[in-house]
């Protein structure tokens, strides 16, 4: 699975979980850029991502993500392992 497809899938997950059709993620997007991306919804996003991509992360990994780009890179690395 390539990086563009992962970003597209992650974008769809954000739209669904945060119930906001207007979300258009870029690699630079952070929680500051999206009102609905609060700490509780972050949990829902991680759960949805782990289910969708059939991967598991640990707490240290997800705390290290500074933006959507780092999140998608981590997913890509794990999916293509």
């Amino acid at each position: 699975m390539d990086h563009n497809q992962i970003i597209k899938d992650v974008n769809d997950i954000f739209i669904d979980v945060l119930d906001n059709e207007d979300i258009k993620l870029t690699t630079a997007t952070t929680a500051i850029d999206i009102d609905e991306w609060d700490s509780l919804n972050h949990i829902q996003l991680v759960v949805a991502i782990e289910k969708h991509f059939k991967v598991k992360f640990n707490t240290t990994e997800i705390q290290g993500w500074k933006n959507v780009g780092e999140m998608c890179s981590a997913i890509e690395k794990r999916v293509n392992q």
């Binding site: 972050h42 949990i43 991680v46 759960v47 782990e50 289910k51 598991k56 992360f57 640990n58 707490t59 990994e61 997800i62």
Partner: peptide, 11 residues
């Protein structure tokens, strides 16, 4: 039915 250790969440 689901354990998500990264976010300490259980389903």
């Amino acid at each position: 039915t689901g354990v998500f250790e990264s976010v300490n969440t259980y389903e």
